[in-house]
Design a protein around this nucleic acid. Structure first.
Lengths: 226, 226
DNA sequence: CATCGCCGGATTGTTCAACAATCCGGCGAT
DNA sequence: ATCGCCGGATTGTTGAACAATCCGGCGATG
């Protein structure tokens, strides 16, 4: 329920402490493994094995798999099992098409001062990480930057779409981040985009972001054997 | 698996006759009921009842619920049950924000002659429905039009996002379509947008679409008690 | 020697039954 | 009228069972 019935129950539902179900926790754990690269694309996930490893029932694992499948992190092949999703070259372009649509639209619309400040914060976070030489922090800062851009639109749905896309991208980012200086080149881009945004020139900011995404896609395509 | 490993198995997987699982069929049936308005927003869906009605196990119903919840057609309240999703005024704006981002981006990018022809076909479909006085066909033609616009981008992911958004909108369209001439006014808009697209003036087409969506949102907001 | 068909093990799809946890509505006490 | 408690109903989760399907290998056949 989004916030439909305006009764006191709706308020209660919003205040309710969300106790994640077991299936949710299993899904979360698998998501973590996916993000950390412990499970590589193509890996098969056997229901009974996962159930045993995590100490839950097979049915619960199935529910978790359904969740992940809905997020495209995992693919179900009927009667064969679920496999960690792996992106084909075409998928890379596809993902970037989504990002171009969403991020550029959000950036074009501008946003409240508060939300712009969040973008700036992500830029600075990246700079700090770079100064500290922490490549991993640099990567997450970059994701924060792009999430902050989408957040400009203030749309819950766009936010979750972006979150899913980023989660998908993490699936094949491992290989790319082998190059320790991968994100390094994006720092200035982010700064310029943010500056244009702060100056109120959303059109220019959008153009810069578009160019950035195109370059990023080409880089990814190159890394992934075309 | 998108199309990842290029082995013969991938080809086989693509050719495999997709026999939908029972859970999928249950989800499909529920989706149908939702689309047809047999289940109104806010309605509670009890696992045991649905299981009995459709002659399947409770566990299977749960899997179907998970599917629908992932599509936002249904909302799960922990320990309380699942309810047919109902959109609050804020959600209406949210949905239109997504539509603006996706549809305008796709339209801006233009598309192959074939895909543009599909847009034109949807426009003509709408005209035919209007001439025949078939209001329901008019509604579906309108959806075809917008799906065709998104399809211009040739992105599977954008297509599914759009499909989900439209499915969400159907949840509260029933009330709106009480007005038999609801879509009528959009016919010309669609035609003009398509004409601009065919003329290669994607910028103008995008502007028209944007205005259209803004108007549509206001109309929806008005219908739904603000 | 290559191909075909079949068999057996393993895994998934689905059902069923049970139980704990939680929620809801009502009822009685204050 | 408010509070707390109780009982029924529903969900969350488990475990086991069985059919359906898939995979790999093995042997028979040409």
């Amino acid at each position: 329920m989004t916030t439909s019935d305006a009764g006191p129950r709706a308020a209660a539902a919003r205040l309710r402490i969300a106790v994640p179900s077991v299936a949710d926790r299993v899904a979360a754990e698998l998501r973590r493994m996916l993000a950390e690269g412990e499970l590589l694309p193509g890996t098969r996930l056997t229901e009974s094995t996962v159930a045993e490893d995590l100490g839950v029932s097979r049915n619960t694992v199935r529910e978790a798999f359904a969740e992940l499948a809905a997020e495209r992190l995992v693919v179900r092949q009927p009667n064969r099992g679920v496999f960690v999703a792996s992106l084909a070259p075409g998928d890379i372009h596809d993902v970037y098409t989504v990002r171009r649509a969403i991020e550029v639209a959000a950036l074009r619309g501008g946003g409240s001062a508060e939300r712009i400040a969040a973008v700036r914060a992500a830029v600075e976070e990246g700079k700090a990480a770079a100064a500290a030489g922490d490549e991993e922090a640099l990567g997450t800062a970059n994701q924060h930057f792009h999430r902050a851009i989408v957040a400009l639109a203030g749309s819950r749905r766009l936010d979750t779409i972006m979150a899913q896309v980023l989660a998908e991208m993490r699936l094949f980012f491992h290989r790319a981040t082998v190059d320790a200086h991968f994100y390094r080149g994006y720092l200035d881009d982010n700064d310029h985009i943010c500056a244009a945004l702060e100056a109120g020139d959303t059109e220019r900011a959008a153009d810069l972001l578009l160019a950035y995404l195109d370059r990023s896609e080409q880089k990814q395509a190159a890394v992934h054997g075309k």
